[in-house]
Amino acid sequence: MSIDDTDRRILRHLLAEPDLPTAVLAERAGVTSGTCWRRLERLRGLGVLRGQGMAVDWRRLGYEIEVSLRFTLDKTAPRAFDDFLEAARKVPEVIQIQTFLGRVDVRLNMVARNMAHYQEVYRSRILTLPHIADIEALMHVATIKDSVELPL
């Protein structure tokens, strides 16, 4: 897969403002609308662009707490990962699931309306997930950098 400087310019502007109309994006990237459209279609075909998403600010919906939960699983069970991930996907407050190689096997990011809600979800839904050998909870305090921009 090869992208050139024109693709990079288009991507930089698209990352900065994902909802730009193609004509405006083309103008800012210094290409015609037709060229911009073809480049975007090519980038989609290459899998570089995977659609346009919507970002929801869960804090504005009343969720004040974010916690990162790190799990080490009991890997003596043959389906430990599969069982754990299947159950974790069913917890509505879990907004992200990641797997790792190393000391930590899985990380879940979850949100809660307040501390009482967090404690209720933690006790009734998180601690009941299968095959947990160890768990560490990290309370989110501040976001210092949250960027999708790449050095293009």
Rank of each mutant, 00 (worst) to 15 (best):
D74W: 11
M54G: 01
G62M: 11
L43E: 10
L61S: 03
G53Q: 02
K75P: 08
R60D: 15
R59Q: 06
R60A: 13
R70M: 15
M54T: 04
Y63W: 07
L73N: 02
V56I: 15
A77V: 06
R50G: 11
V48K: 10
L49I: 13
L43F: 04
R60N: 10
E64I: 01
L43T: 02
R50W: 03
V56S: 09
L49H: 01
V67Y: 14
T76H: 13
L46S: 02
V48G: 10
Q52F: 10
L69K: 01
P78F: 10
I65M: 14
D57I: 05
L49W: 04
L46H: 06
E66S: 05
A77Q: 09
W58H: 10
G62C: 08
R44E: 15
K75C: 00
R50I: 05
L61C: 05
S68A: 11
R42A: 09
E64P: 02
R59S: 08
R70D: 14
T76F: 14
L61R: 07
L61V: 04
A77G: 10
T72Y: 09
K75R: 13
E64M: 07
L73R: 03
G53L: 06
E66H: 03
A77P: 13
K75T: 10
F71A: 12
T72G: 14
E66V: 01
Q52E: 15
D57F: 07
R44N: 02
G62R: 03
D74S: 08
V56Q: 08
V48Y: 15
T72K: 14
E66N: 06
P78L: 02
E66P: 00
R44C: 06
R60I: 05
G53P: 00
G62E: 13
T76V: 12
A77R: 07
R44K: 08
P78E: 12
M54H: 03
G53C: 00
D74G: 01
G51R: 09
R44A: 00
D57N: 12
R70T: 06
F71S: 11
G51C: 14
Q52D: 05
Y63P: 11
